[in-house]
Amino acid sequence: MKLVKYVFLDILRSKILIAYAVFLIAISSGLFMISAEPVKAITSLLNIVLIVLPLFSVVFASSYYYNAYEFTELILAQPIKRSTLFFSQFVGVGAALSLSFIFGCGIPVLIFFRDSSALILLCCGLALTWVFTAIAFLAVVYARDKTKGIGIALLLWFYFVFIYDALVLLFLFNFSNYPLEKMLMMLTFLNPVDLTRIIMLMQLDMAAIMGYTGALFTQFLGSSTGLVWCFFALLLWIAVPFILAQRKFTRKDI
């Protein structure tokens, strides 16, 4: 547990992380200042959060793992369990990324848009940060080579942010004669990015633009139980990749 502190303090001093926070501040406060309606700003911000946040988390977490590799080796030569070290690195990276996000997005959002949906946006952002940190850690433990590992992590990001939606659309198009609403809802749970997008759109009362499925979503997610389910699913999206990654890490050769 003490390790978390040291990992966290080391990362916090990295300039890239500071640049990331500054970038988020600029974007989010810029959006609020430009748009007349805060709701519009928060929708634009949502789109940025959904793309940039996973991308940065994936790249940062995977490059951290490789940069710290030799140090990892030294730590593992101490009487320390591998699972302890891995967990500390995960929590350290996730916490540092979360802090920059809260600093970069949280402060402007809370200044310009004090609302429950702003809070939900921040929770979604935090969840996405942890989900993609976990996914990146899963990708890198399987690849010895740095370029390959970061490449796989980036591909996973690309898959969840772009390819998955394309596949879903293709699927909908081909089976448009069948009632697919329930199916579509299931599919949403299989992609953390879509899941957070839906949560937010529901919050901002934009379900109407999604027609029939939207109605179903509102029925399910409009209730607070639905929201709890969504966040529970996001929690699983953090836990499952992390547990798989940790399993691999404790068994592999360093």
């Binding site: 710290a68 030799e70 080796e73």
Partner: peptide
């Protein structure tokens, strides 16, 4: 270990 890379900011 052989010449090692420590965390830069620590």
């Amino acid at each position: 270990p052989q010449i090692i890379r420590f965390p830069e900011h620590m």
